[in-house]
Nucleic acid binder design. Structure first.
Length: 568
RNA sequence: CGGGGCGUAGCGCAGCCUGGUAGCGCACUCGGUUCGGGACCGAGGAGUCGGAGGUUCAAAUCCUCUCGCCCCGACCA
């Protein structure tokens, strides 16, 4: 492609509202333009990257035996009403009505629609297993779209759904997808980690996220430095500690006027935060539960929700706290508390702890688990760097940040049971299809890849995702240079190499700056000086030194570049 | 939904406090010089100042309402 015929509107200044690199660089390099909040145009370069992402995904999904379909984006409300998600999805659903006032919405995900297809078309165990996928635009009215392509209201997603005869067979489908995902993300040249994840409201039993490691990522994950354990902090566990030698002191009540926070109490009583019990009140499905963790630990709300058996919990309001404890906020504690108490395992190991007395301006000291208070002992604390690995003997956990690029689930029969998607087994018995679902954020990946591959000058696309493979630059107006560049351009195109030729009548500096910004992996420069020696210059975008270029004989250039492109 | 902020030329911004008929940089057009890391000189084109209402002789500027957007938090199959 000749630059003068292309649409590559690069700009020097970043949009004022951009807060992350991918948004800034995709905009500056002319890949995307913002149309509305969380809504973007893909310009030619952006679309080419998007297509590369799609192609890799299609190739690997097809290789894994999945079948591509295309489901509608515009959906009658009936299906979501059938599973209750019409209500549960709340404001996230883009709703609309047709001319006859019928309810419709734009699809945020397609479990219902695919399950409907399956219940109509899959009848026998002989039809199974099946894995259907699509690459489709999804719509979610996010409470707060942000980060350019990272969190949009309209975005492109690959979603796949597997159907099997049994839980065991579904596990196999899940593993096949897991392996396909590994190939996909490897091919994209991303550094990522597969982590245990919350199956949450999807009603699934097993799930893993593919987290692309980026410091600015929205998700926090922990991984063991010695074994394979890696998990989203939402569900990460920590090794349970052994009990200390018990040396219980008697329970005593102390006046702690105005000392509400852990910091205030530890300073006032001269005790370490680890000797405190932090008691927080949560509302779960309408009732209040007290959650007790060690003073230096934080509560993991997903674990609390799991322990209670609900999909989410909320921190109680001040009024709720006063009502439940009879004291101001800051003085809650498990001793003598009448409601349900959940205690983190580590908290039960604190002997002679200090905790609120459920009485304004008072705390207890000498609090000991089992003697002074009871409760359900579960794992409730948020894992953090340095915590002991729950899976192996000696490892410790380290924290990372990531962007969720893929998520795979075993769904079980959640949707098939509700919607009556059944097959007939060998014994002519009707059984619900066992499902799995597998998503990849296609448009998000364009931004995610960039978040991981850029420098101060611009983007550094991995070869597999780059909009073009070679960025050809001619410098100077020299007739010989012009002719040589033209010839090289044609030769490269003839070999099927994707080349963007900056044929603009611009100064070299402008061309080089734009080349760095756009981020095509190989830059080839044809200039008067080197051409006089029969050479052209090759510079990889990953090479930091702007002056470091490899000189290649003109005659060997095409083959050399062909090899360089193949090797990525 | 809670807190904060911003809407002025395609982009980034100033002007608003203290009302007086809209400006800067980039980009764009034309002419000239220049040409290996975002050149320079000169001449131009381009804005219902987010919208509605009000105050006033006069509103980008003051007042009221409204819409949109951004940031932090909440939320995020």
């Amino acid at each position: 492609m000749r630059f003068t015929r292309a649409l590559v509107p690069t700009v020097k200044e970043a949009p004022a509202d951009a807060t992350n690199v991918s948004h800034v660089l995709l905009t500056r390099a002319g890949f995307i333009r913002r149309v509305g909040a969380g809504i973007y145009d893909f310009l030619p370069l952006g679309l080419r990257v998007l297509r590369k992402v799609e192609r890799i995904i299609r190739e690997e999904m097809d290789r894994a035996g999945a079948l591509e379909v295309l489901l509608p984006a515009l959906l009658p409300a009936d299906y979501f009403k059938e599973t209750g998600r019409w209500d549960r999805f709340g404001d996230t659903l883009f709703r609309l009505q047709d001319r006859k006032s019928g309810d419709y919405h734009l699809g945020p995900t397609h479990e219902e629609i695919i399950t409907d297809l399956a219940r109509r078309e899959i009848r026998s165990y002989r039809d199974l297993p099946k894995n259907l996928y699509q690459i489709q635009t999804k719509f979610r009215d996010e409470p707060r779209p942000r980060g350019g392509l990272l969190r949009c209201r309209e975005f492109l997603m690959k979603d796949a759904y597997s159907f099997d005869v049994s839980e065991q067979a579904a596990m196999k489908s899940y593993e096949t997808m897991r392996d396909a995902y590994i190939r996909i993300f490897d091919r994209m040249g991303l550094r990522y980690r597969m982590v245990q994840a919350d199956s949450g409201a999807m009603g699934g039993s097993l799930s893993a996220e593919f987290q692309v490691l980026v410091d600015s990522g929205e998700d926090a994950i922990v991984a063991c430095n010695a074994c394979t354990y890696a998990a989203n902090v939402e569900v990460a566990l920590v090794k349970r500690l052994d009990a200390p030698e018990p040396a219980p002191s008697p329970l005593a009540k102390l006046a702690t006027p105005g000392k509400k926070t852990i910091e205030e109490v530890t300073a006032f009583l001269q005790v370490a935060p680890a000797r405190m019990l932090k008691s927080l009140l949560y509302v779960a499905a309408g009732s209040v539960v007290m959650v007790v963790v060690r003073g230096d630990h934080d509560v993991n709300e997903v674990l609390v929700a799991r322990a209670v058996g609900v999909s989410e919990v909320f921190l109680a309001t001040e009024a709720d706290v006063r009502k439940a404890t009879g004291a101001e906020v800051g003085f809650a504690g498990p001793v003598g508390f009448s409601g349900r108490v959940l205690v983190d395992h580590a908290a039960t190991r604190v002997e002679n702890a200090v905790t609120g007395a459920n009485e304004t301006d008072a705390h207890y000291t000498g609090v000991t688990w089992g003697r002074d208070y009871q409760g359900d002992v579960v794992d409730l604390r948020l894992a953090k760097t340095g915590d002991a690995c729950p899976q192996c003997a000696s490892g410790t956990l380290a924290s990372y940040r990531g962007i969720e690029a893929g998520h795979i689930f075993v769904l079980g029969t959640h949707y098939s049971a509700i919607m009556g998607a059944e097959y007939l087994d060998e014994a002519q018995k009707k059984k619900p299809l066992v499902m799995g679902c597998y998503g990849i954020g296609v448009s998000r990946l364009v931004a995610t890849a960039l978040e991981q591959h850029h420098d101060a000058d611009g983007i550094r696309w991995p070869m597999s995702l780059a909009p073009y493979q070679v960025h050809l630059v001619n410098v100077g107006k020299d007739q010989a240079v012009q002719a040589a560049t033209e010839e090289l351009y044609s030769a490269l195109e003839a070999r099927g190499i994707e080349v963007l030729w900056d044929d603009r009548d611009e100064r070299p500096g402008v061309k080089f700056k734009d080349a760095d910004l756009i981020g095509i992996p190989l830059r080839v420069t044809v200039g008067g000086k080197s051409l006089a020696q029969g050479k052209i210059e090759l510079k990889a975008r990953t090479e930091a030194d702007p002056k470091k270029a490899t000189l290649i004989a003109r005659a060997e250039a095409v083959e050399f570049l062909e090899r360089a492109v193949r090797e990525g």
